[in-house]
Write a protein that binds this DNA or RNA. Structure first.
Lengths: 107, 107
DNA sequence: ACTTACCGTAAGCTATGGCTTATCAAAATT
DNA sequence: AATTTTGATAAGCCATAGCTTACGGTAAGT
């Protein structure tokens, strides 16, 4: 039920970059920010959005906050597109059957 | 190479609704707009964005424009998340191996 | 105990995005 | 040929989103 927020979360390029960097493994905020063209607070804000979307988890480690990808959210997104793909494919097949050689004018 | 725009395109709820309706099969603009809480120009604008993102195709049919899902764009999106999923899973496995019972303090 | 490193939140600015109404174009209908 | 239907585009408005700087708070190091 969460793919809506997930999609919105991954729409922003910077936020997507943050997320993609986490695919290499868990990382603290500072390290994430160091490789990006935005400030650390900006990264924090992005991480908050990603977390609320169920795409990342975080855990405290001393004074650091280590963020990692949440397989839950990513999985939901994958399922969404898979299901979508199947549905679209079925519609395609139905269309092709109804109209084998589309030439002109049918309603 | 187009999943960036695709994600941005599907971030908006209304636009996503347009796209999801097309999963049932090709439809002209008017019919799409009739079931949505926005005006027809709004739907046209959304379709333009979806088209530029490679998510839909359109073809003229008399005075109507029939829009349909473009499997190309949808497939690219699916591949993106599949690849991402694999990468994240590998990172997870590596993490678990490096640190079987996480207790405290390692860098 | 004091300082330093790390991080989240608040406030404020600016740009962008989505919506509406109005207008124009083309094909179908009469 | 005049009207109607269908759709795209333009202009303009308003809300939201993302960024920055500034601040506060906690844990570690000295």
């Amino acid at each position: 039920m969460a793919y809506q927020n997930s999609l919105a979360a991954l729409a922003d390029p910077t936020r997507r970059a943050v997320f993609e960097r986490l695919a290499d493994g868990p990382q603290p905020v500072g390290r994430l920010a160091r490789g990006l063209p935005v400030s650390r607070p900006a990264v924090s804000q992005h991480l908050k959005v990603l977390k609320e979307a169920g795409l990342v988890r975080d855990r405290a480690e001393g004074t650091r906050r280590v963020y990692a990808i949440d397989p839950e959210g990513l999985g939901a997104l994958r399922r969404y597109f898979d299901q979508f793909w199947d549905q679209a494919l079925a519609a395609f097949a139905a269309e092709a059957e109804k109209d084998p050689q589309p030439q002109a004018g049918e309603d």
